[in-house]
Amino acid sequence: MATHTSDKKKYLVGIYDHEETVVSAVKKVQNDGVKVDEVYSPHPIHHIDVYIGHPRTKIPIAAFMFGATGTTLAVTMIVFMMRIDWPMIIGGKNAFYPPTMVPVSFEGTVLIAALGMVATFLVSNLMGPGKQEFMFDRRTTDDKYALVVDLDKNTKSIEEIEAILEKHGASEKPRVVER
């Protein structure tokens, strides 16, 4: 008889009521030997990603690269149009006149940097119009904090991890959720 094994991973979800409690829980739970996978919250919590051990985001590097691309594209466009393809001498100014290139080059830099960075943000988070979300608990966009433990990445039993989450302030009995 063929046996069906679920491809879904199992997570244990602890719910916390306060920002301070969840921040301290992340540190203490990890000190107790449980690897925290993620914390979901209704607002940003500074440095919690560092406590969890997420690598630092490379978004600023992407923004810089896109900005540099924007500057290069804008300057190339102006030089090509004003100097190479159809040289225009207007008001006695040289066709290649750097001060007049500043505004459009600046706008090009900002435009490409902003659009590129936001596109990187959406792609890196796999977000986009109509993307189906997976919420461990929908109240985490309201007033609750969810501390999620990937059971596959931990050697302790569910009961042990449950006890640790509750010991460090979980306001409800932790639940197992499949994703």
């Binding site: 914390v39 607002h43 940003p44 919590i45 977000m127 986009g128 189906q132 919420m135």
Partner: peptide, 11 residues
């Protein structure tokens, strides 16, 4: 856009 609100996304 499929927002989930994890700490990595918030960062």
């Amino acid at each position: 856009f499929g927002w989930e609100g994890g700490s990595k996304v918030w960062a």
